[in-house]
Simulated assay, not measured.
Amino acid sequence: MELPLSDVIIGAISKLIDDAQVDSREPTHSELETLISRSGLTSADPKSQGQTVGKAKRVRATLNWAIEHNSPAGSKLIALILSQVRAVGGFRETSPNYVGKEQIANAISAFESENFSLSEIGDIRPKVLDTLKGRELTNFLEAYAQRAKRGSEDAALLSGTGKDLLEATAKHIIQTKFGYVPTNANFPTLMGQAYAALNMATPETPKEQNEPVIKEYERAIFQISTSINKVRNREGTGHGRLCVTSLTQEESHSIIESVGIGTEFLLMRLKQSS
């Protein structure tokens, strides 16, 4: 996943590692040097030119060079910095390396303007899934399946698509196996086509004598998935969100966890079929 590189993004990223107004915090200059090197931007690093600059100015200068001469390397550096800031607790308010509420809000806004969604805990994802294809989309869906299994509510909603993980996964499977995604198909139809692509059994599939016992589990996943979709459409906003008054928080979390289990199972079968 290639992250956006723009003037507003560069400014926001620089603020995430700026410690000029506070006691020194991670990432350190040494860690930044490693990240810059991994991105292939050492020659653009002011420190490599003998200059003594603060961390924010160092990152700005490196990324400003990249935006003109090597955009992919700049995008990689942004991703590495976000990952490092998250790893050292920069997005956690109780951490000594916390970057600050305003800095995080500015970064969220900056990525929002580039059609990317940065969460308050540092996770980032594209708002439009059409920008991802093939294995990269599989990895993306797997990551959110794991979050959904832990009951993370935002993982059940792919912002900007209006579709939850199960529907996005079904479309991905159809695209991967058949080379197209049907338009205006309802959720049960999409799931049925995804199941057909993976040679899985739906509740409508006749039971065969001595069939593998896993076929019953496949049917159960299908039923759970279509039930979740009905709840989403009737009780939610129609866009994957399940935080409504007729559902308790425990019920919502249970449904979201089931979304993760179903998504993970479908993606596992997709990988097995390739």
Rank of each mutant, 00 (worst) to 15 (best):
P4L: 00
P4Y: 04
I9H: 05
D18G: 09
A20R: 14
A20L: 08
E33L: 06
E33R: 08
S43N: 12
K57A: 05
R60S: 14
L63V: 10
N70T: 05
K76L: 15
I81H: 00
Q84T: 13
R92N: 15
T94V: 10
V99Y: 01
G100D: 12
G100R: 12
A110I: 03
F116A: 10
E120A: 15
I121H: 15
I124G: 13
V128H: 01
R135T: 12
F140D: 10
A148T: 03
A156I: 01
A156L: 03
L157E: 11
L157D: 07
K163T: 08
L165I: 03
L166V: 07
T169N: 09
T169E: 08
I173Y: 01
I174V: 13
Y180S: 12
V181I: 14
N184L: 11
A185Q: 04
L190P: 02
L198S: 10
L198E: 11
M200N: 05
A201N: 13
A201D: 14
T202S: 10
P203N: 01
E208K: 14
N210C: 02
P212R: 11
I214H: 11
E216R: 14
Y217G: 01
E218W: 12
Q223N: 13
S227M: 15
S227F: 10
R232W: 01
E250F: 15
E251T: 09
S258H: 05
V259T: 06
G260V: 03
L267Q: 09
M268G: 13
S273D: 14
S274A: 14
